[in-house]
């Protein structure tokens, strides 16, 4: 057999062997065996000395091509085998993706604090500061500075937990108004604040009363603050909390520390004003009390009521949350049953 034919035979056998191989190891072995220094091609080329000189370049080229072709055959087979192995692996690793995951649960913020923070964020966006207050407050700030002197009948409207004659558990976050007005430097611009917090009243706890609940007070003092400003601000708040289509209405009311005073109703978010159980078939839901700060209250903080005016409002986060989520027992906020708490994950 000529060297030429021998090389061609080696090529054919090599390619066939590569194609038949089933494992990566066999292919590696084949590569070493056929193309290595001790392999048959190298062996065959020892017979080159018997080839006439003029044919030698041709044989050389052939030998290189044979090596290349075998190499290519082995590599392409390796690729095939690899693909098969991966396909098999993927098949074996297929999971039941409907099985439950490993849980990594994040906790739930209390729904009252979610409600409060939502309102806080709204007002921070309008440039309001969030002022904390005292839960134990002086009679002076809780009542007298709010135009409710001793013996005023309005003190009957809110029964108070006193600690001493002059100290009490605050009954309203409005108690913060006097402190904030005293502290504010009006030469630096208007006072715009909200003050959320816990308040206390001497009530028996039942489905609609709690001796402890939350309030959020708002106060803006500047030159030219008007009833229209109050309406626009509360309109925007109610749309933020209860939905963009809400309307509000003012009804005259009475608070000793505002004049004029109003109750604020929001159009029913459930029925849109048609009338339903939630709005007691009126189309409106009472959500907060507000008004222009009484001149006496401003004057007691040394603010000239001829130059400055102010609006104030107070709202109940419990009431907001109860309305928004249909909670019908105020005690649910304070018993902290985790099934109650966790249903509000991420609502605000």
């Amino acid at each position: 057999m000529s060297l030429n034919d021998r090389l061609k035979e080696l090529r054919e056998n090599g390619i066939n062997d590569a194609k038949r191989a089933q494992h990566l190891q066999d292919l590696n072995d084949l590569r070493v065996q056929l193309l290595g220094k001790k392999g048959p091609i190298t062996q065959a080329l020892r017979g080159m000395k018997d080839v006439p000189k003029e044919q030698r370049p041709e044989i050389g080229t052939l030998a290189n091509n044979v090596k290349k072709d075998i190499q290519t055959a082995i590599e392409s087979r390796i690729e095939e085998v690899n693909k098969r192995i991966i396909a098999q692996k993927l098949q074996e690793e297929t999971l039941d993706v409907t099985l439950p995951a490993q849980s990594h649960e994040v906790g739930t913020k209390h729904i009252l604090n979610q409600t409060i923070e939502d309102i806080e964020q709204f007002f921070i966006g309008l440039g309001y500061e969030v002022a904390p207050g005292y839960e134990v407050e002086e009679d002076h700030y809780n009542f007298e500075r709010l135009n409710i002197p001793k013996d005023h009948p309005a003190r009957d409207m809110q029964d108070t937990f006193y600690i001493t004659n002059e100290l009490l558990m605050r009954t309203q976050t409005s108690a913060q108004e006097g402190r904030d007005m005293d502290a504010h430097d009006f030469s630096k611009g208007p006072l715009k604040m909200i003050s959320p917090g816990i308040v206390y009243r001497r009530d028996d706890d039942d489905a609609t009363h709690s001796h402890q609940f939350h309030q959020l007070e708002g106060l803006v003092v500047d030159k030219n603050i008007s009833m229209a400003d109050l309406k626009g601000t509360l309109e925007a708040l109610c749309r933020h909390v209860f939905g963009p289509d809400r309307e509000i209405r003012f009804r005259p009311s009475f608070f000793p520390f505002t004049e004029p005073s109003v109750e604020v109703d929001v159009s029913c978010f459930n029925c849109g004003g048609e009338g339903c159980r939630i709005c007691k078939y009126t189309g409106w839901i009472e959500v907060l009390g507000a008004g222009l700060t009484h001149p006496n209250v401003l004057e007691m903080s040394g603010i000239d009521s001829n130059v400055y005016s102010a609006f104030a409002f107070g709202l109940g986060p419990e009431r907001f949350a109860m309305l928004k989520y249909g909670i019908d027992d105020i005690r649910d906020f304070y018993t902290n049953d985790v099934r109650f708490l966790e249903q509000f994950k991420g609502v605000n």
């Binding site: 309001y128 500061e129 030159k223 005259p252």
Partner: peptide, 28 residues
């Protein structure tokens, strides 16, 4: 003011936002 406002009708009042100087809001 309260008497005039309520008889005039709160429903006739157009809401506005306070138009004074800007303030920086925020938490403590």
């Amino acid at each position: 003011i309260e008497e005039i406002m309520r008889i005039y009708g709160y429903e006739n009042l157009q809401g506005t936002l306070p138009s004074g100087n800007e303030t920086l809001g925020g938490y403590t």
